[in-house]
Design a protein around this nucleic acid. Structure first.
Lengths: 213, 213
DNA sequence: TGGTGTCTCTATGTTCCGTTGAGGGTTTGG
DNA sequence: CCAAACCCTCAACGGAACATAGAGACACCA
């Protein structure tokens, strides 16, 4: 129950490895912008849980690698990471088809289509929580004219990606000093960013192939 | 040879449809930051070619949708779009395997692997110019531990994407007042951004599936 | 020729992203 | 119990990026 927490000094010490320019005042600044909500000791000192440390890493990474303004990061993170520990979660699974469709504001048939094509996976007790984000994102893509069947391979890619990242994460964990669980989600973000660059390049080539200028 | 050009007033008029807050002074500002280099009449008036208009659209889109700072946009665009019309192009195809490997600073075997798995396509006279970007992006992805074979499906997705976008582009062109070729590359960027959101969501689900917390 | 469009250049404004410093509590260990 | 190290809040400051506005002058078209 009682997971470990660190103070702001130790936190910055830890983060400095990956983000050399981090400072205590920047952490406080992030709190002032409501991107993080550390807990406090009785005397008012901030305490940072492991979860929160991971969240901060992700915030810094989004800022560094994707140049996102903090406001946008805040919006993006509120979907899938708790500010502190308890999340009302826009909605939590497992879902039924109807619940999922309702939560994502799409037709039930879309959920079924996505399932048929393996984009969504249905667990024993229904669709897992992550399904909601998937449906939402998929519907954005489909607005562009793609068909659900075109999305089949997304699952395939994701599976190999996840697999290779797990391996990498374990390797990193072993090589580092000690604990530092090396957040999978952080690795994942980097990987997806890289993949999306590749997607762009190949799609550009594809367009070129079909209608060479 | 002599394609049409527009003045700065007409340009802003045109862009306002998609970017309501655009102003003449912002266009001049973009030029001052070297993101665009319009040609000039003898008397010094700016003239904007269709190509350049497309480029400006893309700049504004990157700024609006992906929140990129102008400096980053500049860097990103210098790869694949001409500032004006002639591009030195970091290198232009068609390439041989060796040339491509050299330009992308990778081993020749990687080029061959990528070809074997359909990520790269070889034209009659060699690898097309777009191949360079593909190899560069792919090598970034592979650093994360994926294997070339995992990238197979990237081409598949890109192909359906390109196909559906072409259809959409034609539809849009027809429905709009007149010319406005509706830049494929701009549509493409939006689509890839959407796809990358989906990738993230599915990969997160995949990680969750393998090691449920 | 006059009205509108465009030019350059300089000044001003806004927002984001922090940093600094004053003034004052807390913790730890010798 | 006291010093050194750590942490707190709050308000002021600062720089860079992103524009906007206006003055003064030339260009273009009727």
């Amino acid at each position: 129950m009682s997971s470990t927490t660190v103070g702001i000094g130790e936190l910055v010490e830890t983060l400095r490895e990956e983000f050399p320019r981090i400072t205590i005042s920047k952490i406080r600044f992030l709190e002032s912008k409501a991107l993080i909500v550390p807990s406090r000791t009785n005397s008012g000192y901030r305490r940072f849980s492991e979860e929160l440390v991971a969240r901060i890493r992700e915030i810094l990474r989004l800022q560094r690698d994707e140049y996102l303004p903090l406001e946008v990061i805040a919006k993006r993170m509120e979907r899938w990471l708790p500010t502190q520990s308890v999340k009302p979660a826009s909605a939590a699974g497992p879902f039924t088809v109807a619940e999922l469709a309702r939560a994502a504001e799409v037709n039930a048939w879309l959920v079924e289509e996505l399932t048929r094509h393996g984009v969504l996976r249905e667990g024993a007790d229904g669709y897992p929580t992550a399904s909601l984000a998937i449906v939402e994102q998929a519907s954005r893509v489909l607005e562009l004219g793609l068909e659900p069947r075109h999305l089949r391979s997304v699952r395939t890619v994701a599976a190999s990606l996840a697999d290779s990242l797990r391996g990498r994460s374990e390797a990193l964990s072993r090589s580092r000093r000690n604990s530092a669980p090396v957040e999978l989600s952080s690795l994942l973000s980097s990987a997806v960013a890289a993949l999306s660059g590749l997607n762009t390049a190949v799609a550009a080539d594809e367009i070129d192939r079909l209608s060479p200028s």
